[in-house]
Design a binder for these strands. Structure first.
Length: 770
DNA sequence: GACAGTCCTGTTTTT
DNA sequence: CAGGACTGTC
């Protein structure tokens, strides 16, 4: 890295021009706006991250603001890392002292510094949603509530939403039985957390907010320190996060908020788009700057997306525009079923790649993660490398959490969740009975499981065998702590893995799954080895936690990105939520069906349809040059095949932007056997919409969506359809991929489990349908 | 304590 | 259908 040389004036001049390079008028205005409340309404693809990072660089370099006076907040660790990298690039040096992170990460840091003022034990521990779920389940059991009636998941969700709105149990109405019970559960859960020194995600935020509210000294310290506060994805802030920002900026009002009301897609977890409107009320004289030039998509894509989002009421309103050319129309494919949809998508990707494009320039997007399976299956079949985003992350995997539990006990013996998790893993003769005794004692004396167990062993309260087993466990942890006291983090993890017996436990079974687990555990050791302590002594007032504690907190707060060979050129598969902030030359928006997208549950809840529409908008605006949208006439879900209807969002796209793609292989398919009920029935009762075309039977002309004909004379296929399982005398079992020709020329493409993909002439193939 | 069988439930997801 | 949670048996 280049150190900043003396003679700053000249350098600053250079850098300044660097900071202003390639900015349009609105971006420039935002970057160099005078201090005060600023609301940047940044449409999709309008260079929002660029503005944010340049603003920080401008403050530091041109305005001579001390980095330590800057606080920048993002929503994900990934976004934080990216922003840090880009700011460093602009400044040619890391901005020492600047705080940049997620709301949760920053609150965690504040609570570590002010644990006493926040009424927390010094060794307080962050629990993730899985730990929280287990804890709530335990609370329900202790309260002797029926888990059928009071579903732990539901309770967890309710408690979290109350916390997200800054409501403590005592703030809840104590009305009917249901309200009363929830209050009791919430209260008991809080008691548990307090006693055990546990802090869940929502608590990190709420506790910090309360700390600011109740403690003038702490509040003023940070208000004075952070003279400039910047927030990314402002539309995704919840009630607490907004209050928190308001307090921090109360004196100077230097809040730089960047957001897009049209891209608010996290309302279901407490985000409040209204914060954008509230902002202008709460901060009088807010300067609003709109970034409306889109640098990402073709004009057609942009106009189509704009037409969809225009159906939402109560928008702030933006006019996104581009100087790019129209580009290709949006391609719409009405698939016969979900298998055919996947076939179409995969074949389209194949030919895109065959034309010399990179695989990672294309993304397949879907509403829910389960939809990825059909695509994965086909991609695997043709050996096209792909990568699925989302799903379980490293630190959420069971075996990783087991290993982490040992580390947590080393760091803090009083961690009940960790104790409960591994006291008998691997099995060491401490069964449910013994464990219940320990738990009972802990409950009675209001002490941790560790202390209860120690006391019981000391007082010979248990049968000899159980007592010995328990003592061995306690000893094991103590020994591990002793042995690792002076080791590097990676070696601590390694030691814990070996000496806990976990490694042996998982190597005993020899399946693919077990192998994967061992790999994951190895990866945990690597993570520990590479872990960089993020805040150290002297950084701020107060002592920094040791490396192990920081690593554990990090494991909870940053679940670890889906690890995969990122260097490989892969087709990208992800949910629409996961796609936010990304862009791809070629995008497939799949499963465009009412009931799936928009999701059924959003159709039942008022208001949530608009969020689905924003999700659609987010999806469409990911595409740079080509956008395909697909839907399937029938879809396999929960073990059944359902007829479906095209998504209402498709009808909201003006037909002139759409080009319908007719099935190339399947236009002559006869649908034998059970037949396909294309019309009527299905989700939510058939009202209004003819399935023949999303635009009401093609009234607009041009863009009618034809379904594959439902009734055809004998054509030589004998009832074969894509997706059907067949058996061949020689090749064995396989799946029909495609059909072409007719009569005696009818040919069928089959993917055989053993023999691979083959074209066969139906007349001779003698396929047996299964 | 391991394993097989049953029941049940199926959004989105970060922290 | 399929995966997870849970129950019951040896």
């Amino acid at each position: 890295m280049i150190q900043s040389p003396p003679g700053k004036t000249a350098v600053n001049h250079d850098r300044k021009s660097h900071i202003f390079d390639n900015l349009n008028a609105a971006q420039l205005e935002a970057v160099a706006a005078s201090p005060g409340p600023l609301l940047i309404l940044a449409g999709a693809g309008s260079g929002k991250t660029r503005v944010l990072t340049r603003r920080i660089a401008w403050l530091i370099d041109a305005q001579r603001v001390q980095p330590r006076a800057i606080l920048a907040v993002t929503f994900t660790n990934k976004a934080a890392a990216e922003m840090r990298g880009r700011v460093e690039g602009l400044l040619n040096a890391p901005p020492g002292g600047m705080w940049l992170g997620t709301f949760h990460g920053l609150c965690h840091r504040l609570l570590r510094l002010h644990y006493a003022e926040a009424n927390l034990p010094q060794a307080f521990e962050i629990i993730d949603s899985d730990d929280q779920f287990r804890l709530i389940r335990r609370v329900l059991r202790e309260l002797e509530l029926d888990e059928q009636r009071w579903a732990p998941r539901e309770m967890q969700w309710l408690i979290n939403s109350h916390k997200e709105n800054a409501r403590r149990p005592q703030d809840l109405p104590d009305g009917d039985h249901i309200a009363h019970t929830l209050r009791r559960v919430y209260h008991a859960y809080e008691t548990f957390c307090r006693r055990l020194g546990l802090v869940d995600f929502a608590e990190l935020l709420l506790r910090t907010l309360e700390l600011f509210r109740n403690n003038q000294t702490v509040r003023e310290t940070w208000q004075q320190r952070f003279q400039h506060v910047l927030v990314d994805e402002f539309q995704d802030t919840n009630a607490i996060q907004y209050q928190w920002l308001r307090i921090l900026c109360d004196a100077h009002k230097n809040l730089f908020a960047v957001g897009d009301d049209d891209q608010s897609i996290y309302g279901w977890r407490g985000a409040r788009v209204e914060n954008i409107l509230r902002f202008q009320k709460n901060f009088p004289d807010t300067r609003v700057i709109r970034l409306e030039q889109n640098y990402r998509s073709t004009a057609v894509i942009l106009k189509a997306a704009d037409a969809v989002i225009a159906h939402n009421a109560g928008r702030l309103g933006k006019k996104l525009w581009t100087d790019r050319s129209s580009g290709a129309p949006i391609r719409l494919y009405a698939a016969y079923n979900d298998f055919d949809e996947a076939r179409f998508v995969v074949e389209s990707i194949e030919s895109w790649v065959a034309r010399g494009n990179r695989r990672d320039s294309t993304a397949v997007l879907y509403r829910s993660n389960g939809q990825s399976r059909a695509f994965e299956k086909l991609l695997r079949a043709i050996k096209m490398p792909y990568r699925v985003y989302g799903g379980q992350r490293l630190f959420e995997r069971a075996e990783i959490k087991d290993a982490l539990a040992y580390l947590r006990l080393i760091a803090n013996r009083d961690s009940d969740p960790a104790f409960a998790r591994v006291v008998n893993l691997p099995a060491r003769g401490i069964g449910p009975r013994t464990f219940e005794h320990v738990r009972e004692r802990a409950r009675q004396q209001q002490i941790s499981l560790w202390r209860a167990a120690t006391a019981m062993v000391d007082e010979y309260e248990l049968p000899a065998r159980a007592s010995n087993a328990l003592q061995r466990f306690l000893q094991l942890i103590d020994e591990m702590a002793d042995a690792t006291a002076d080791l590097e983090l990676g070696e601590v993890a390694d030691h814990a893995l070996t000496h806990s017996g976990l490694l042996e436990h998982f190597s005993r079974e020899s399946s693919e799954i077990a192998e994967g687990r061992l790999e994951n555990l190895q990866e945990l050791v690597d993570e520990a080895r590479n872990f960089k302590v993020s805040f150290a002594d002297g950084d701020d007032e107060g002592a920094a936690p040791d490396a192990l504690s920081q690593f554990l907190a990090n494991a909870a707060l940053d679940a670890g990105d889906t690890q995969a060979e990122e260097w490989e050129d892969c087709v990208q598969l992800m949910s629409l939520h996961a796609a936010k902030g990304l862009e791809f030359p070629l995008v497939f928006l799949t499963g465009m069906e009412d009931g799936l997208f928009p999701h059924q549950r959003s159709l039942d809840q008022p208001g949530s349809l608009e969020e689905e529409r924003r999700l659609c908008y987010v999806g469409m605006t990911r595409a740079m040059s080509a956008l395909y949208m697909t839907w399937a006439g029938e879809r396999h879900m929960h073990g059944q095949t359902h007829p479906t209807r095209p998504s209402r969002f498709l009808r909201e796209i003006p037909p002139q932007y759409i080009e319908e793609i007719r099935g190339t292989h399947i236009s002559n398919v006869s649908i034998g056997g059970r037949g396909v009920s294309v019309r009527g029935g299905g989700f939510g009762g058939g009202r209004g919409v003819g399935v023949g075309g999303v635009h009401g039977g093609g009234a607009h002309g041009g863009a009618a969506i034809q379904r594959p004909a439902a009734h055809q004379p004998a054509d030589g296929f004998g009832g074969l359809v894509p997706g059907r399982s067949v058996r061949h005398k020689k090749f064995g079992e396989g799946l029909v991929i495609a059909l072409e020709g007719q009569g005696e020329h009818a040919r069928v493409q089959v993917n055989f489990a053993a023999a691979g993909v083959k074209w066969l002439v139906c007349q001779y193939a003698r396929l047996e349908t299964l």
